[in-house]
C-alpha cells in the first residue's frame, strides 16, 4: 500500500475514533484496506474464534482413548495421536475455546481494572490518586509469575476461572500506569478544559470526551493482557498448576512434556498447540500494530477519487 508507514499504536499520534455507527462501519472498511496488518491479524483472530465456536460440532470426544498410540499424522489422524491414543487434532480444536476464554476474559477484567484504577485515579486526583498509583507500582514490581505460581498452587481449581481471576488481578498494573500517565496529560488538554467551561459533568468528560481519544491505548493494553494471559496460563499449565485435566493448549503442552513427547520425537503432539499459541499471539500483535492506522481519522478521511493511482504514478517518477 502506498499510504501507510505508521509506528505501532502505543506512543504514536493520538488515536481518533468517532462518528455514527453506519459511517463508522463504512470508515472501518476503508481503514482495513489501508492496514493490511490489521486485516491479516483480524483474519487470524476470526479463524480461531470460528474454530472455537464451530469446531467442536465436527469432532468426537477429544479425550477418547484409542488403540493407536503415539501415531504419526496420517489420513485417519491428521495430527497424529497422543501417548493414550487420543486424537491430537480433536484436542487442539477442543482446546481453542477454553484458551481464548482465558485470554479474553482475563484481558477484559484486567482492562476494566486498569481503566478504573489508572484513569479513575488520574481524574479524582489528590490522595486517592497517590494511593492508587502506589498500589499500581507495588503490583508492577511484584514478580508476577512466582506470585501466580504460589497462588495457583494453593487454589484447588475445578475450572479455569481461578486461573483467569489470578491472571486478571496481576496483569492490570502495566496498562493502568500507561493509561494514568495518558489521562494526566490529557486532563489539561484544551478540549477537556473547553468541555469543563461548557458545563460538562466530570464523569461525562471522562467517558465521552476523554476515553474515545484513548481507544488505541486501551485496546492495545487489552491485547497485551490477552497475550499475557494466554502465555501465563500456558506457563502455569506447563508447570502442572491449575486443573491440568481441562483442555487448553497450555495443558496439551504439559501432557506432551509429562509423557516424554519431546524425547520420543512425537513433534505432532506439542507442535500444533505451540504453533497455535504463536499464531494467535501474532494475530493479536498485528491487530495491535494496525490500530493506529485504523483509529486515526486523519488517515481515515476521504481520499480523492483516483488519488491512490495518481500517488503511485508520482511515486514511480512519471512527470
Amino acid at each position: 500500500m502506498t499510504t501507510t508507514a505508521i509506528a505501532p499504536a502505543a506512543g504514536a499520534t493520538e488515536p481518533r475514533p468517532g462518528r455514527g455507527l453506519s459511517a463508522r462501519l463504512h470508515g472501518a472498511a476503508g481503514a482495513l484496506r489501508r492496514s493490511p496488518r490489521m486485516l491479516v491479524g483480524l483474519i487470524i483472530l476470526l479463524f480461531f474464534v470460528l474454530l472455537a465456536v464451530f469446531g467442536p460440532l465436527f469432532i468426537h470426544n477429544p479425550n477418547a482413548l484409542g488403540t493407536e498410540v503415539l501415531g504419526r499424522p496420517s489420513a485417519k489422524y491428521w495430527l497424529g495421536t497422543t501417548q493414550e491414543g487420543q486424537n491430537v487434532l480433536y484436542q487442539v480444536i477442543a482446546a481453542t475455546g477454553p484458551t481464548l476464554e482465558v485470554g479474553f476474559v482475563a484481558g477484559g477484567i484486567s482492562t476494566v481494572l486498569s481503566l478504573l484504577i489508572g484513569v479513575g485515579g488520574a481524574f479524582i486526583g489528590g490522595i486517592s490518586d497517590e494511593a492508587l498509583n502506589l498500589f499500581t507500582n507495588v503490583i508492577l514490581v511484584i514478580p508476577v509469575m512466582p506470585l501466580v505460581i504460589v497462588i495457583s498452587a494453593y487454589v484447588q481449581a475445578k475450572s479455569l476461572l481461578p486461573t483467569i481471576i489470578i491472571i486478571a488481578f496481576t496483569g492490570w498494573a502495566g496498562t493502568a500506569r500507561v493509561l494514568r500517565a495518558l489521562a494526566l496529560s490529557m486532563r489539561s488538554r484544551d478540549y477537556i478544559l473547553a468541555a469543563r467551561v461548557s458545563g460538562e459533568r466530570p464523569w461525562r468528560i471522562v467517558v465521552v470526551e476523554l476515553l474515545p481519544n484513548m481507544t488505541a491505548f486501551i485496546v492495545s493494553g487489552f491485547i497485551f493482557t490477552v497475550i499475557f494471559a494466554i502465555l501465563t496460563q500456558a506457563g502455569l499449565a506447563f508447570l502442572g498448576l491449575g486443573n491440568t485435566n481441562l483442555l487448553s493448549w497450555g495443558n496439551m503442552l504439559y501432557w506432551a512434556q509429562a509423557d516424554q513427547a519431546l524425547t520420543s520425537g512425537a513433534w505432532w503432539w506439542f507442535a500444533p498447540p505451540g504453533l497455535c499459541i504463536a499464531l494467535l499471539g501474532t494475530g493479536l500483535s498485528l491487530v495491535n500494530f494496525g490500530l493506529d492506522e485504523v483509529l486515526n481519522p486523519r488517515l481515515r478521511s476521504v481520499r480523492p477519487v483516483g488519488g491512490r493511482t495518481k500517488a503511485r504514478r508520482q511515486a514511480a517518477g512519471s512527470p
Binding site: E14, R16, P17, G18, R19, R189, D190, Y191, L193, A194, A195, E209, P212, N213, P297
Partner: peptide
C-alpha cells in the same frame, strides 16, 4: 482558547 487545533475534541464532529 488560544489553540484551535487543541480546543476541539478530535474524536467528535
Amino acid at each position: 482558547f488560544q489553540d484551535p487545533f487543541a480546543s476541539l475534541n478530535p474524536a467528535y464532529t
